[in-house]
Simulated assay, not measured.
Amino acid sequence: MSQVLTFYAQTCSKHIFSSNRSFGSCRDLPVLDAHLHWNYMPSTKSIQIAYRAAQTSEGWIAWGINPTGTGMVGSQAIVAFRGSNGSMTAYPTSITSYNPSLQPSSLSFQVSNISAEYAKGQMTIFAVVGQLATGTSVNHVWQAGRSVSDNIPQGHGTSGPNIQSMATVDFLSG
């Protein structure tokens, strides 16, 4: 058992990103085979993030911050998927209900440099987030779904890991 835990504990710190991207901090997330990498930039109080998760080319992933609560509803997210033209699509979206449209929308905080990639069975979202009104400690959520139809991510599972995908992270202290 300790060998398994050691393997997972090293997953995010050993990852090598394409295009010479590097991140000074990371956390293996407890469910959905997901990982969050970041660089906190004190001069702008913003965070450069890479959220990556195991996924098929037909599925989608999302990562977000909930500035007002701890769950999915109220989250400000970035969703990514392979579009019908074959290229990766990523954009911000607000989660306002348990049946969100996942359409592009503005967020309550600044987000820029959004991009995504798919390689070796993983999707990755890249973005710069902030300055955050809540400081460096935030409630974050992450999600994955199995399908996209007409360039719209479809629903995700409603039990097990899909409803456990939330935590708190402090971008300053890790």
Rank of each mutant, 00 (worst) to 15 (best):
G174S: 02
F17L: 08
P104N: 08
G135P: 02
S149N: 11
W60R: 03
C12G: 08
A54V: 15
I95A: 06
Y118P: 11
I49D: 05
G121N: 13
G71P: 04
S147D: 10
W63E: 08
K14V: 06
T68C: 02
W38D: 12
W63T: 06
G145N: 07
S147N: 12
R52E: 09
L132T: 00
G121K: 10
H35N: 15
S115D: 07
T134L: 01
S75W: 05
K14E: 11
S137C: 05
T11A: 15
G174L: 02
S13C: 11
G86I: 12
G69D: 07
L102R: 13
G69L: 01
Q10I: 00
T70L: 08
Y40E: 03
V141N: 13
N162H: 10
A80H: 06
S22A: 12
T89G: 06
A34T: 07
K120W: 02
L32Y: 08
G121F: 13
T6D: 09
G69Q: 01
P42Q: 04
L107S: 11
H35K: 12
T96S: 09
V148G: 11
S101F: 01
L102K: 09
T70D: 11
T136W: 00
N162L: 01
D150A: 15
W142P: 15
N39Y: 05
S159I: 04
A77G: 02
T168P: 00
P153I: 08
S106C: 05
F17Y: 09
I49E: 03
S13E: 13
N162K: 00
S147I: 03
M41A: 03
I78Y: 02
T124F: 04
W63R: 05
Q55P: 02
S137Q: 09
T6K: 07
I61W: 07
V148H: 09
S25L: 04
S115R: 04
G145P: 06
N39K: 02
S149G: 01
V79M: 12
A127F: 01
H156S: 10
C12P: 10
D33T: 14
V148A: 12
D33W: 12
N85I: 10
A34F: 10
D150S: 15
Q76F: 01
S2F: 02
M41Q: 11
M88V: 12
